[in-house]
């Protein structure tokens, strides 16, 4: 049996006396999409930021299965190793593309940045790879020298996705990746994400309060309330047969709306 790519145990994050999230344990397996759902303020972003190394935890362990076979706690990696992971093996897709893009440099440079960060020094090759990735996220090649400020919201989000995937990461974190988009645009981005995730065999942890997004993308779901996990399970099971009263309420409220 293979081992998880990410393993979280007894994670807690406090904001002073206030609990952001607590008592969190779960594993993410290679190639698996896990959705974290819950109402606003339930601690989804807090949890995601902790496990992606962007926010310090108060206690608990977060271990990552490295390409070299080590399975260290993120806290035991040097800052250099952690940052290297973040720009090679991992990706992070922000709700607001401006948080994940360099808005004042061209689309090509946005995609090429990670390649340059890992030492690529051939302009022609970087540009070629960038063009390829723009194609994969359905951005026309002739937009390669345009800056994201000139892009629509949906294009920006697709550019952010390409920028993350160019180094062939194994694990992607997403915080409401379609949350800021018009409904008409959401479907296209979701479709694209779904295709890329399965083509590339990515493991994904995605935060969303939209159960339809969770249904479309994820195999497994974690339901949070007041900073705690109240239910986890296969996505279809949780949505079709929710056990916890809070999940039942969540599902019911979606069906009604």
């Amino acid at each position: 049996m293979t081992s998880p790519i990410l393993s979280v145990r007894d994670l807690e994050r406090r904001y002073g006396d206030f609990i952001g999230c607590t008592d969190i344990s779960f594993d993410v397996w290679p190639g698996e999409v896990v959705a974290i759902v819950g109402e606003s303020g339930s601690g989804k972003t807090t949890l995601l930021n902790c496990i992606s190394g962007r926010l310090d935890r108060s206690s608990g362990s977060i271990r990552y299965n490295m390409r070299d076979g080590r399975f260290p706690d993120l806290a035991d990696l040097s800052e250099a190793e952690r940052r290297f992971l973040m720009r090679t093996d991992w990706g992070f897709v922000h709700q607001n593309p401006a948080d994940g893009l360099r808005m004042r440099v061209s689309a090509g440079a946005n995609v090429g940045e990670r390649l340059m960060a890992i030492g690529d020094r051939h302009y022609g090759e970087i540009r070629h790879t960038a063009t390829e990735w723009l194609g994969r996220v359905e951005i026309a090649g002739d937009r390669i020298d345009d800056k994201p400020v000139a892009f629509s919201g949906g294009m920006r989000q697709r550019l952010q996705i390409a920028r993350n995937l160019v180094t062939r990461p194994r694990l992607i974190f997403m915080d409401e990746p379609t949350g800021g988009l018009d409904v008409s645009v959401q479907a296209r981005v979701l479709d694209l994400l779904r295709g890329l995730v399965s083509d590339l065999g990515l493991a994904v942890v995605i935060v969303t309060h939209d159960l339809a997004v969770a249904r479309l993308l994820s195999q497994r779901m974690i339901v949070m309330k007041s900073g705690r996990i109240v239910e986890t399970g296969l996505t279809d099971r949780v949505l079709d047969d929710p056990h916890h009263p809070y999940t039942q309420l969540l599902v019911a409220s979606i069906l009604e709306s």
């Binding site: 360099r102 440099v105 090509g108 440079a109 090429g112 940045e113 990670r114 390649l115 340059m116 960060a117 890992i118 030492g119 020094r121 302009y123 970087i126």
Partner: peptide
């Protein structure tokens, strides 16, 4: 890597 973004 960032400095090469500028040259790119």
């Amino acid at each position: 890597g960032l400095i090469h973004v500028k040259l790119y």
